[in-house]
């Protein structure tokens, strides 16, 4: 996974597509039994952004990518490939 390419792709999407992408990565994290592998500071930041309605943003997406890459790298890779 090339993070810069993923972020570039994110910025090319329209708002609805961005939301769908973010929800997809969030689903991977919430459904993972390995959430303990996510660094705590990343997890807390995701929760804070989710609860304040700021997760649907470039910063939120970056955090989600880091978290999903920590707990479900293969699922994240497959999901991002499907998005392409």
């Amino acid at each position: 996974m090339d993070p810069e390419r993923v972020l570039r792709r994110y910025l090319e999407l329209n708002e609805e597509e961005q939301k769908k992408l973010i929800d997809g990565v969030l689903e991977i994290i919430l459904s993972s039994p390995n959430a303990d592998l996510v660094p705590d500071e990343v997890g807390w930041s995701i929760s804070n952004k989710f609860r304040s309605g700021e997760l649907h943003s470039l910063d939120g997406f970056k955090l989600l990518l880091e978290a999903a890459n920590s707990c479900e790298p293969m699922k994240l890779k497959k999901f991002l490939e499907e998005v392409k």
Binding site: I29, L30, A35
Partner: peptide, 13 residues
């Protein structure tokens, strides 16, 4: 069994 940040998100939902 999940980290507290994850319980916060599910609680929020």
């Amino acid at each position: 069994n999940s980290p507290l940040w994850k319980l916060e998100i599910i609680g929020s939902i």
